[in-house]
Design a protein around this nucleic acid. Structure first.
Lengths: 239, 239
DNA sequence: CGGTGACTTGACCTCTGTCAAGAGAAGTGG
DNA sequence: CCACTTCTCTTGACAGAGGTCAAGTCACCG
């Protein structure tokens, strides 16, 4: 099951046999979470990090007036709070957007990796850096793109990330978020979220029914989104 | 001069004498940049990372319609493109917002650090993770805060980051950005940026003249911003 | 079969962008 | 030292994007 982490890392660089053995030798605990349950709570100081093996999760913050902003979406294979290994205190919560399976890995185990396996350490470091790159892309989308383009961009990104983990069927993928949850991702109201989705639908660019998204015209959607996948670093090269 | 990096890391954990020596032994090149010059260009593959020792710099992306979004602001002591060490290809540019002094450190030197000094490596890793935490806070501000609160939040953040590097005088700090550049940070138009600044001014919360920002009422500004500095990880603890 | 949650749609209003123009400060060259 | 340019800040008028409120539809479920 932890092979999903190896699969994920192998999208960015060659992972040696020794490194694979080391990953497989890490002590882990398996757990399941119900929908809407917190995998990690804000202000907590977890002693382990959580690898998502099945389901969708989100990092989020609540504002004093009760609104929510989702700052990151996570798909299977993602280390949802690897950053807590060094941050120590969680500055946000992580919630299950669908039923989730996870593996928890103690920080002491990760500390051992940093002492014994510099290259593997760099690959884990890289994953947190890619999280940052995705954050930057979201900032650009929120600040300078139309809502239509922002949504298009997000769907392109999700398709590529899920494809890298073998979770797409051609241009379709399972996507459990409600429109209200999507509104918390894009930072807009539920009503306008609905209208933005319909805007892409009416042009025949996407279909979105039954928690399944299908991109009907990839080239056009990519152009609307101004989507360039460089920031996902989905190339195998020495790191 | 590289002691500015040690000073920065020491804000988060104890840096041992051995680690200080190792940092001081790194081979570096010094350089200066004029205002508006790129420290690093988008799509380049730098073989070194850049430590900012004096001046202000910004990470930015351009959109096809010619607008710009600034995704991060950097102050002296920041490693502006440490992430390029593992990302390899820059997914954005970095520009000097004032005359800048930098030190360039080859990636091969950083690679040596990851092999020889696991704890120092974790501290560098932490700096990239804090960058990510700041990104998330900006996403929340863009998505769910009023522009007034967003600006208040940014000023609180800048004051704390500059204070940690000893670059504030009480509640004042030098800040070279024009209102047009600030608009590219907050993701709004120049005209509305101006009105938002005046909004905070008229309530006697800030003064902003001559490239100097003064926070006139910290408590009130913090409340408006809903500012909680946890995400900056400015606590000294084992990492 | 009523209840619940998610999705839709319309009406209206506010926030923010765009366009246009003027004021003030700073630097340049004759 | 003065005219001139340039850059930044400021203000007003108007338009458009997006929020809020309200109500209705539809599927699913106990």
């Amino acid at each position: 099951m932890i092979d999903i982490l190896i699969q994920n890392l192998a999208n960015h660089d060659i992972v040696s046999e020794d490194e694979r053995s080391l990953v497989r030798s890490l002590a882990t605990r398996e757990r399941s979470y119900e929908i809407d349950e917190d995998l990690v709570s804000e202000n907590s100081r977890p002693s382990y990090s959580t690898l998502l093996t099945a389901g969708f999760a989100a990092r989020y913050k609540l504002t004093p007036d009760g609104t929510r902003q989702i700052t990151a979406l996570h798909v299977p294979g993602d280390f949802v709070d690897l950053h807590a290994f060094l941050l120590k205190t969680m500055d946000h919560g992580i919630i299950a957007l669908s039923p989730c399976r996870v593996m928890q890995i103690d920080h002491t185990e990760l500390e051992t990796v940093t002492r014994k396996a510099p290259h593997l350490t760099r690959l884990l470091w890289l994953k947190t850096i890619i999280d940052g790159a995705i954050h930057r892309e979201w900032i650009v989308a929120m600040g300078r793109r139309s809502k239509r383009a922002h949504l298009a961009h997000l769907l392109c990104e999700l398709h590529m990330r899920l494809q890298a983990m073998g979770l797409t069927q051609d241009l379709s993928f399972h996507f459990p978020l409600s429109q209200g949850e999507m509104a918390d991702v894009l930072g807009l109201s539920l009503v306008h979220m609905n209208r933005t989705i319909q805007n892409l639908r009416k042009d025949g660019l996407i279909s979105w029914v039954n928690h399944t998204v299908t991109i009907l015209d990839w080239d056009e959607l990519r152009d609307i989104a101004d989507f360039d996948p460089t920031y996902l670093s989905l190339t195998v090269e020495p790191r």
